[in-house]
Simulated assay, not measured.
Amino acid sequence: YDFTEVLRWFGERVDRIILLFDAHKLDISDEFSEAIRAFKGQDDKIRVVLNKADQVDTQQLMRVYGALMWSLGKVINTPEVVRVYLGSFWGKPLQNTENRRLFEAESQDLFKDIQSLPRNAALRKLNDLIKRARLAKVRQE
């Protein structure tokens, strides 16, 4: 099967797409790049999580964040910046507590974003219906 087409199909039907990056492994492989490109047109659904951000200090975190944004900018061609959540989303305690408040706030923002999905489902469905109606109208003309 065509993996990119499968991702495109799922991307059209899901409410949120979360791309997960490790603070120590920011490489975007060719396969991952193609996977991200499969979500073209679904940019408003994409969120990025920079995981294990507690394993670097504040100065390194700024560099890692900048490098991630630069790499994503080459793959996701949108005028708007993708929302990136910073934190340590695993069961282990924070290794570097320097940014604890930031990570806690980012974690809360991510969970609020996920919790808001059911409330916004009707609006997303309506927007999808309008988009399909416009495509149908264009094809008739």
Rank of each mutant, 00 (worst) to 15 (best):
M69V: 14
R100Y: 10
N99R: 10
W70M: 13
S88F: 01
R101N: 07
R101E: 12
G87R: 01
V48N: 08
R101M: 09
Q95S: 15
M62C: 02
P93M: 06
I114W: 02
W90D: 11
S71P: 07
G73Y: 09
L110R: 01
L72R: 00
E104Y: 13
K52A: 13
D109K: 05
E106W: 00
A53H: 07
V64Y: 06
F103M: 00
Y65S: 11
L110M: 05
V82T: 14
N99S: 12
P79V: 07
E104F: 14
D109Y: 03
S71M: 09
V48H: 03
L61I: 08
V49E: 01
S88C: 15
D57M: 03
D44L: 04
V48I: 15
D44E: 13
L110E: 00
T58Y: 15
A38G: 04
V75R: 00
Q59N: 08
P93G: 06
P79I: 07
V84M: 13
K92F: 10
Q42Y: 01
D54I: 11
G87E: 05
K40Y: 08
A67P: 02
N51P: 12
I76W: 01
K40M: 08
E80Q: 10
S71L: 13
D57I: 05
F103K: 00
I114G: 04
R63S: 11
R100F: 12
I46V: 15
A67T: 12
